[in-house]
């Protein structure tokens, strides 16, 4: 059995930052030995477990002692926590809506050729699966967000603490100043950028359409049991990934600079224009170039998993969705460029 004193020192040390931990542990050991020696001398008794317990109780609970030594550890600190909440409040409802749409599609397919017959039990089963899926997705997304914010917490430039003498009220954010940058927006864009990078580089290749032996179909990622998945995106799409990475990384860099300066400057505005021009260039090239969709109508029909009707619906849906997403990106980037140019000229 571990000695009580050693167990206590280890427990305190476990909660201390690694820097200086050994020194603090050495000091606590020395102080506890002094206290035990003093108590033993005063009572005229040898040190025993009861005496150790009394001394340790006087010294304080390990977590309290560690906190007094400045061991305050957190994943997301008070500075980033509001932005974390803001992003979570936007992303988590989107996940819930997607889950509801997915459930709606599955309920709508009940009773159709190739799908299970309808009925209350089947509907409840689909509802229950949707709830379970939603729970898993929420935990995964929440965990990913926590991980991203924990990384930001440790990598974002530290904002110097201002004391009463050096703090200047003029440094407060002006509500109406178009050059002022808030805290939430850049952090939100950094998080979205990192999520996009993860999707493009890790998951995009697995996105596809799947079919099963019963003739049902699904859109999603190629990790579902019992489904044969066909990739959704062509090599043409993946040729754009390096350029998209550059654009996203540039945007993340821009937002880090904005977080640091908390205000737009002509240089950051020009960089913003450059990023949006690059983005429009990529998207236009995607629109006018060869198809980005790997799913081919004939291939899907030949696979035997899809009927001609289903293929028509799927292909139409996908190509329209992709086209509109690209058009919306061009419009949004165009508006951003116009706004930025107008602010540069106005200045």
């Amino acid at each position: 059995m571990k000695d009580l004193i050693e167990a206590y020192i280890i427990e305190v040390g476990r909660q201390l930052p690694s820097q200086g931990r050994e020194d603090v542990q050495k000091e606590i050991r020395s102080l506890l030995e002094d206290a035990l020696e003093d108590r033993s001398r005063e009572s005229g008794q040898a040190v025993d477990d009861a005496m150790k317990v009394a001394v340790l109780k006087e010294f304080g609970a390990p977590d309290q002692v560690a906190a007094n030594y400045g061991a305050v550890n957190y994943l997301v600190g008070p500075k980033l926590y509001p932005a974390f909440l803001q992003v979570a409040k936007i992303v988590l409802p989107i996940i819930a809506v997607l889950a509801l749409i997915g459930m709606g599609i599955r309920l709508g397919q009940l009773g159709q050729p190739g799908y299970a017959a309808g009925g209350l039990v089947k509907m409840l089963e689909i509802g229950w699966e949707a709830i379970l899926g939603l729970g898993t997705s929420v935990i995964q997304v929440f965990g990913t967000l926590a991980l991203i914010f924990a990384i930001l917490e440790r990598t974002l430039p530290r904002v110097e603490q201002k004391d009463e003498k050096t703090w200047d009220p003029h440094t407060l954010e002006k509500v109406e100043g178009p050059d002022q940058v808030g805290f939430g927006e850049p952090v939100f864009e950094i998080v979205i950028g990192l999520l996009l990078l993860a999707f493009l580089n890790l998951y995009a290749r697995y996105l596809g359409a799947g079919y099963n032996a019963e003739g049902g179909w699904v859109l999603g990622f190629a990790d579902q049991n019992g489904w044969v998945m066909l990739p959704a995106l062509t090599e043409q799409f993946f040729r754009f990934v390096p350029l998209m990475n550059v654009a996203i990384l540039a945007e993340i860099g821009l937002n880090l600079v904005l977080l640091r300066k908390r205000a737009w400057t002509p240089a950051t505005r020009w960089l913003n224009i450059g990023i949006h021009v690059l983005r429009i260039g990529i998207v236009v090239a995607m629109l006018v170039g060869p198809s980005l969709l790997a799913l081919d109508a004939q291939m899907l029909i030949d696979s035997g998993g899809f009927t001609a009707e289903t293929v028509e619906v799927v292909m139409n849906l996908l190509s329209q969705m992709l086209r509109w997403v690209l058009i919306v990106v061009i419009i949004l980037s165009g508006v951003e460029i116009a706004k930025t140019v107008w602010r540069l000229l106005r200045k």
């Binding site: 102080l31 002094d34 010294f59």
Partner: peptide, 28 residues
């Protein structure tokens, strides 16, 4: 003085201090 002896001296002066407060304070 070392930490424990300082605590004893404070105690002799009538100032009872929690050890978990005093020792981290010395480091600060």
């Amino acid at each position: 003085q070392y930490g424990y002896s300082l605590m004893k001296r404070l105690s002799e002066c009538g100032l009872e201090v929690e050890q978990g407060t005093l020792y981290p304070l010395l480091r600060r």
